[in-house]
Amino acid sequence: MLSYLLKRLLLFVPILIGVATVTFFLVYVLPGDPVLSMVGERYDQETIDRLRKEMHLDEPLVVQYGYFIAGLARLDFGVSYVTGEPVWESVQKRFPFTFRLALCAMIISVVIGVSVGVLAAWKWRTPFDYLTMGTTIVGISMPVFWLGVLLIYLFSMKLGLLPASGYGGGSIKHLILPSFTLAQASTAYVARITRSSMLDVVREHYIQTARAKGVSESRMLFAHALRNALLPIITVVGTDFGSYLSGAVLTESIFAWPGLGRFTLDAILKRDIPTIQGAVFFMAVVFMTVNLAVDLLYAWIDPRIKLQRRTASGP
């Protein structure tokens, strides 16, 4: 177990260097001079040249890459071109907002998704089943920005129940709309996967006997079936959690949520190279950590699963 963990962690290194390198060359190859986003609409060439020199932008690409890798080794991404703040600090300041939103979305998708899925399986082929399965597939098909707008329109503007946007200093009221918006797709997906995994068990082995033996037995059956659904649920929720953490850009912009996604979007639009590099790097670390955690969780829940499986053949 421990050696496996070490091996996986060691694997982080080349992947992260890869991610950082791709980002480095990407932002440098693309057109647009980062210095120009630091000055107003009226500027002179002298100022531009001076700034470029100070930021080492006048040096050959290889040398710049050297600076970059040297900084990377110390986890130092430098200061933002645009705000002048140390990048790594800003990233860490913004991450908790994203984390909180992602965590809530994850809890919602597990709690609601599993409950709906279990009920739908229980009420298999009843109107409830059809209704929820219909709703969930529509839910999966709805663009997240569109849902967010509809929710604001309904719950804030029309009903006046919830605030429209903002972090609100951490109030729960402000959290509800964005986290439901973000959770929409995975809630629907968890519901469907729960239902179908349970039905597999029920249909395959027990359906006749369980029905015959009455409620208490079928309750056990459902517990068994639910365990069967656990692994696919973890896969879904884990993957989604990882991607929520690496920036729910659309949800965060619509709800004016001060998270990492919007932070990175702003940096991209302002051509703030150090910030883009730092934020993308951080997101990659988070994403891989969550993946690793999911793998470990797998092994813990079902020791029969060999840890190497997912790494060897993909999810």
Binding site: S156, M157, G160, P163, A164, S165, G166, I254, F255, A256
Partner: peptide, 11 residues
């Protein structure tokens, strides 16, 4: 759009 909504709900 969000700014308008915020104004209308009094935020």
């Amino acid at each position: 759009f969000t700014r308008i909504a915020d104004f209308e709900v009094g935020s």
